[in-house]
Design a protein around this nucleic acid. Sequence first.
RNA 1: UGGCCCCUCGUCCAACGGCAGGACAUCAGACUUUGGAUCUGAGAAUGGUGGUUCGAAUCCACCGGGGCCAACCA
Length: 562
Amino acid sequence: MTHPAPRLDFIREKVAADHASGRFGRAIMTRFPPEPNGFPHIGHAKSICLNFGIAREFGGTVNLRFDDTNPTTEDIRYVEAIKHDIEWLGFRWDRELYASDYFEQLFEIAVGLVERGKAYVDSETEAEIREHRGTVTTPGTPSRHRDRSVAENLDLLERMKRGEFPDGAHVLRAKIDLAHPNMIMRDPVLYRIRHAHHYRRGDAWCLYPLYDFAHGLSDAIEGITHSLCTLEFKDNREIYDWLVREAGFAAPPEQTEFARLELDFTVVSKRKLLRLVNDGHVAGWDDPRMPTLSGIRRRGVTAEAVRAFAEGVGVARSPARTEWAAWEHAVRDDLNMRVPRVLCVVNPLKVVLTNYPAGQVEQLEAPYYPHDVPKTGSRLVPFSGELYIDRDDFMEDPPKKFFRLAPGREVRLRYGYFITCDEVIKNGSGEVVELRCRYDPATRGGNAPDGRKVQGTIHWVSAAHALDCELRLYDRLFTVADPDSLPDGQDFLSVLNPNSLEVVPGAKVEPSVGNDPAGSRYQFERVGYFVSDPLDSRPNVLVFNRTVGLRDSWQKEKTRSS
RNA sequence: UGGCCCCUCGUCCAACGGCAGGACAUCAGACUUUGGAUCUGAGAAUGGUGGUUCGAAUCCACCGGGGCCAACCA
């Protein structure tokens, strides 16, 4: 029995070739290198799946390395969140490492560079350095300190490390080429002085390496074989290669770039996500509208769905955004096979069954799963002469294709009886407040002995038995597909969706869910997938988050005809 | 504007000089005690112009479009 060869993406092809040829002389080793300055989001999930997946597939290992080189923006809180989210996603790392643990080794490499005339201490101001770097069309000009002697550079570097100078007094720069067409190569800054407390190294250092210096060298120190990153680091590869070569690493890691994951109607820039949190546009990093893994999780999405989505999007080199529908499909596809169906009425409309025996209550057996989901189980749902149905399921003057309840129409109550609407009761302002209906006792369970059919089946709850609950109906956070590219510098906050959260305080859910633990997932039949809020939902204060609505061809029909 | 990268159905990804395929989306139908799910079918693409070649989505050139780079961020 042979399996069709899985189609490899361009990165896996490369890894497979290197693995087969033994190019590195060591096992495949990848790494996931987050900076602990924010919560991981759906874009990180793609990178995590790639790096951890490749290590697993090729019998290699994967390092979780925090690129913690900027103490002023980083926090231990974020490293905990990152670790938690990776585990939640279903991956585990072989080694937990920190770039800050390499500070001593990195510094020795810097000293070596200085000794060989490949780096120098620059004492120009930040503004001067920027100005002297030139522009993309004009070459830069050398700093007046560029030709300091090795001895002077060494002395200065050592004193920088000892803390003799204030922030910004000096930096260490690589000595490459101020006229280089790649701006990254115009004598990049390697170290800056920061008298700041590091959450890991305390006050041991006041000299911190920059990304370009720390990242590639950290990869090389660890023996990484394949260093995978996103497209915007393409230009940085040149300094990466320059540094590992200068540092003398044999069989150094190879950097390969791929397009990051971007999703319609959301943003994945940590800067923007931080702003949403800090400015209070969302309730926090784990707000269910956020594309963070913690937000997605609280929204009710499973790790399996996130992985399926990340894998489904693919790995390529062309910058791309994925449609929202692809995301919703991954979420529904997973939940469909996983969660029990229960009944919940969003906007209750009272229905009185005029011919139902007064005071009678029946317990109707209702399966948790439909015929096409291979799971079993059922519960009893109370039925009585006073019910609630959803307001959307009744129209006084229905259009032709409306299959639900209307005056004189008969519908099936899911798992219950056929009912026919006889009378519509309105209040003083003409608003429908109650329906008087007749039920057919012969249709118990939902089938008519005489074989007659009904067009529609609607959900319902027994008024006396239903539990009150709050529904949080989440929708996309932005009103436009690409909040990252707005006309003439318009701020992304201006396209926030004001209706991204609708709180429905008075919904009615069947009593069977009353004691389920917080975090339980359901499909509310004909409405959508919901999860009881892990933080706010309690037995007598039920709160449900809408993970995603059901596909709705009636909605489609309505918009088509209007 | 200098350098680099990218461009295949509406969207995302394949096809690696030899029949342009899959997924999502869309449309039509079947089935249905969820207007859900499932099943069947359909429509839908190689940015443009030249060149190389028996043969080009694939190689080359130019044009067009998009992206990244001028933090002591990553």
